Measured scan of single mutants.
Amino acid sequence: TTVHVNGVTYHFPNPEEAKKFVDRVVKEAGLTVEVKGNQWDVE
């Protein structure tokens, strides 16, 4: 699973890890998340 955060790419072994990361980032920074298949874009 690939997560893009403001142009930076993070790779995770599974969607659960990616979701935990995204949830944390979104809570801390108040960002928006767009999910496209296995790819997350966070802005």
Rank of each mutant, 00 (worst) to 15 (best):
E43M: 13
K36R: 10
F12C: 05
G37T: 06
E28F: 12
V33K: 03
V5C: 15
V33E: 11
V22D: 01
E34F: 03
D41C: 15
V33T: 09
G37A: 04
G7L: 01
F21D: 00
V8L: 07
L31W: 14
L31P: 05
Y10H: 03
K19F: 06
P15M: 13
V3E: 00
Q39V: 13
Q39F: 10
F21G: 00
E17D: 08
K27M: 12
V26K: 09
P15G: 06
P13K: 12
E34N: 12
G30T: 06
L31T: 10
V42Y: 08
Y10I: 03
A29P: 07
F12P: 00
E16W: 13
K36A: 14
N6Y: 09
G7H: 02
T9D: 04
A18D: 00
L31R: 04
P13T: 12
E16Y: 11
V22I: 13
G7I: 04
N38Q: 08
T32L: 11
A29Y: 14
G30F: 06
D41T: 14
N14W: 01
T2E: 04
N6R: 05
T1R: 04
K27V: 06
A18N: 00
P13Q: 11
K36T: 15
K36L: 15
V22T: 03
K27S: 08
V42N: 10
D41E: 13
K19A: 08
T32I: 12
T1Q: 04
Q39K: 09
V3L: 04
D41A: 10
H11F: 13
E17Q: 05
N14F: 02
V35N: 10
F21K: 00
E17F: 02
A18T: 01
V8K: 13
Q39M: 10
F21Y: 03
D23M: 07
E28D: 07
Q39C: 15
P13G: 06
A18V: 01
P15E: 13
F21E: 00
Y10A: 01
V5S: 02
R24S: 10
T2M: 08
K36F: 14
W40D: 08
T9A: 12
K20D: 06
A29M: 14
V3H: 00
D41W: 15
K36I: 15
N14L: 01
F12W: 01
V42H: 09
Y10M: 03
K20I: 10
L31C: 15
G7E: 02
E28C: 15
T1C: 15
V26D: 04
W40L: 07
V8W: 07
E28N: 07
D23C: 15
V5M: 10
